[in-house]
Each structure stands twice: as structure tokens, then as C-alpha cells.
């Protein structure tokens, strides 16, 4: 092993100016268990890097913040060739429950929290959660029906204003 002697100790630059001004907006539009996680994991990672982070929940993504469904997101292998399972079999009654159970066990196995706890983690880290106005109206849901950490129900224009200068990721 070659050892390099440096006189000045390297110090990690944690508060780099350019980095701390970074802003991320995630749009979560899907409500299945497997599609809930990408947005939540990225949001959590961004917050851990000191990036201002907003998540906008729209359409099926509402299931992630709807108190009635957030504990009970499902996963189906039907129509998903990446599972390498035959659709005919995965479409049988009860198979969605089986697939969901298996995925939840895998997620738990690597110590990743369930959806509601993940939202606690994100809001605890200073993340901002927003619900889509049109989806709320369509589904007849008010702020009381939604996860308590949701800051408000905003329309598309308000989201566009909010995301000014941000990197936007659509999930």
C-alpha cells in the first residue's frame, strides 16, 4: 500500500454553496406499493443531503397520503414482465395479496419503513408534502382525509410556481 502524506488534512465540504441552494420536486402519481417507494426514497435521500425537497401527490399517488389507503398499498405482478411470472397465474384471486405480502417482507428485510412511517421520516427531516387539488376534488377528499403532514391542497399552477428553479422528477 502506497501511503501519501498530506500536510493539510482533507475536510469534507458539507455546506457547499451551490449544493445547499439545490431544490427538488417529486411528483408521485402512482399508488401501487412498488411505485410509492422510488419517490419516497429519493425525497428522503435528498433531504439527507440538505436539499430543499417537495413532493406533490396526484391521481393514484393520492393513495400514498390517503389515511384510508396509505397503510394498505398493494403490488401486483400482472402486466409487469420484470417479475418474470406468468400473468395468468398472477391474475388468479388472492395473488395480489400474496405478491404484496412478499414485497412487504422484502422491504422490511432491508430495514426500509412502511409508507406512513416513511412519510413521518420525510416530514421529520423537513420535507414538504402537497396534495393535488383536482385529484382531491375528483375523489371527494379534504385535508382531514389526508396524512397530517400534508401542508396543503394546491392546484397545478401553484405547483408550477412552487417548483420554480427546482429539479422535477415525475414518478
Amino acid at each position: 500500500m502506497t501511503e501519501l502524506l498530506t500536510k493539510t488534512p482533507p475536510i469534507p465540504s458539507f455546506d457547499d454553496e451551490a449544493e445547499t441552494q439545490r431544490k427538488l420536486c417529486l411528483i408521485c402519481s402512482k399508488g401501487s406499493l412498488d411505485m410509492a417507494y422510488p419517490g419516497l426514497i429519493l425525497a428522503n435521500a435528498a433531504l439527507g443531503e440538505g436539499v430543499e425537497t417537495h413532493i406533490f401527490f396526484t391521481f393514484w399517488g393520492f393513495d400514498i397520503i390517503n389515511k384510508k389507503t396509505m397503510n394498505n398499498l398493494k403490488f401486483t405482478a400482472v402486466g409487469n414482465p420484470a417479475t418474470h411470472m406468468p400473468n395468468m397465474v398472477m391474475g388468479l384471486p388472492g395473488m395480489t395479496a400474496v405478491a404484496t405480502h412478499m414485497m412487504k417482507k422484502q422491504i422490511e428485510g432491508i430495514d426500509v419503513p412502511e409508507v406512513p412511517e416513511f412519510l413521518d421520516l420525510i416530514t421529520g427531516a423537513g420535507g414538504h408534502l402537497w396534495a393535488c387539488r383536482m385529484s382531491a376534488d375528483m375523489m371527494h377528499l379534504g385535508k382531514d382525509d389526508l396524512y397530517d403532514g400534508v401542508e396543503g391542497i394546491i392546484n397545478a399552477s401553484e405547483f408550477i410556481e412552487l417548483s420554480e428553479g427546482a429539479q422535477v422528477i415525475f414518478v
Binding site: F14, D15, T20, G48, E49, G50, D111, V112, P113, D120, L121, G124, A125, G126
Partner: peptide, 24 residues
């Protein structure tokens, strides 16, 4: 961070307060 809250019992917010912006 998740393990610090789960196994260590520290609140996420506390960790962000003590070690601002990039706690982990």
C-alpha cells in the same frame, strides 16, 4: 439515519438540528 432513529432512538428532527443539512 433510519437506523439511528430506529435502533438508536434519536428523532430524525433532533439529528437534523444537531448536524444541520447533512446529518448522516
Amino acid at each position: 439515519l433510519r437506523r439511528c432513529t430506529n435502533a438508536g432512538g434519536f428523532a430524525t428532527k433532533e439529528l437534523f438540528d444537531l448536524f444541520p443539512k447533512k446529518p448522516a
